[in-house]
Amino acid sequence: MKNNIFSLKNKVAVITGGKQGIGKVVAGYLADAGADIVIFDLAEASDVAAEIANEHGVQARSYICDVTNPQDVADKIAQAGSEMGTLDLLFNNAGICLHKEALECTPSEWSKVIDVNLNGVFYVAQAFARYLIANQKTGNIVNTASMSGSIVNIPQCQASYNASKAGVVHLTKSLAVELAPKGIRMNSISPGYIRTEMTGTVRQDWQDIWVDMIPFKRMGTPEELAGAVIYLLSDASTYTSGSDMIIDGCFTIV
């Protein structure tokens, strides 16, 4: 290969929901690709930032940030940009899931899922894009959607989650078109069943059903998402925007 088009060296990447699970693992891979790391999470994540910095020899900082609070998001973007020197990339990953029948879901429960998974993605993407434009920079954003935005999962009931992730997919496409003239690319990944702290707490009989339905006969791992995120954030994908990459072990095509 003539150049290392997958390199993220000299870039600063923000990862929301980076304390654990997909966010934490992918943050480490982005650091391995050369990026300095900024972690946003509701929980204190300085230990994760220190671990990434020590292992990969990059700069890494963490900030407590509520993605459902637009002012907090804007403030933390500005603070991180000032303290890191710049910001270039965003892995917009924070999310929650509620397994509850729609007829039993309360308005507050519905609103909480939509607020974190859809509104939060918008607030962070908006603030990040505003930062790039104000600083006359181009940049790349990857949002975490889900295969649940394309199909209805069984046997669990999770209409709020499914609706929120479908929203993320179309939000990604909409913002990609709006931001293209400004040199900002936006794509999404749609993971299938990934073995993380979140899925590990789900009833075992449901997990068994999921695995039986997956052609690969296993859940994926966060590590198996990292390559897609690196591709979409790197110069390997300079003509790719508004796409949604489903990574599900063939689950949605059978």
Rank of each mutant, 00 (worst) to 15 (best):
V48N: 05
G220H: 00
T144N: 15
A127R: 01
K100F: 02
A163C: 11
Q79A: 15
E83D: 15
A31V: 04
C105G: 12
V124E: 00
A228R: 00
V73I: 12
V25A: 09
K76A: 08
T240R: 05
A49Y: 07
N135D: 01
K173I: 07
D47F: 11
Y193M: 09
D115Q: 13
T172Q: 05
V38C: 06
L233N: 01
V254P: 15
G28W: 01
A74M: 14
R61V: 12
A134V: 02
G220D: 02
T68H: 05
Q158K: 11
S160V: 09
R130H: 13
S46L: 08
Y29D: 12
L8S: 04
L8D: 02
T221S: 14
W210A: 06
S146E: 04
P107K: 10
V25I: 15
D248G: 06
S108C: 07
I154D: 14
Q136V: 09
G139Y: 00
T106D: 09
C97R: 12
V124K: 03
T199G: 06
Q158F: 07
M198V: 10
Q126W: 10
G227N: 10
T199E: 04
Y193D: 07
S188Q: 07
V202Y: 07
E104I: 05
W206D: 09
N10E: 14
A180F: 05
K24R: 15
V14P: 00
R130A: 14
L179G: 04
A159W: 09
L42Q: 13
K112W: 07
A134R: 11
R203V: 10
V58I: 13
Y123W: 13
P70C: 08
T240I: 14
A94V: 08
I39R: 04
D36R: 03
S243F: 03
V12L: 02
I230K: 07
D88C: 06
I247N: 05
F128R: 04
K165V: 06
Q79H: 12
V73E: 05
G57W: 12
T221H: 10
K19D: 13
A129H: 01
C105H: 13
M147Y: 06
V168W: 01
G57Y: 10
Q136K: 15
S111Y: 12
G200T: 04
N3Y: 11
E223Q: 13
K11S: 10
A33L: 07
P70L: 11
L179W: 14
I154E: 15
A53W: 11
I114W: 02
I253E: 10
C97S: 14
K76R: 15
P181L: 06
S234L: 00
P107W: 08
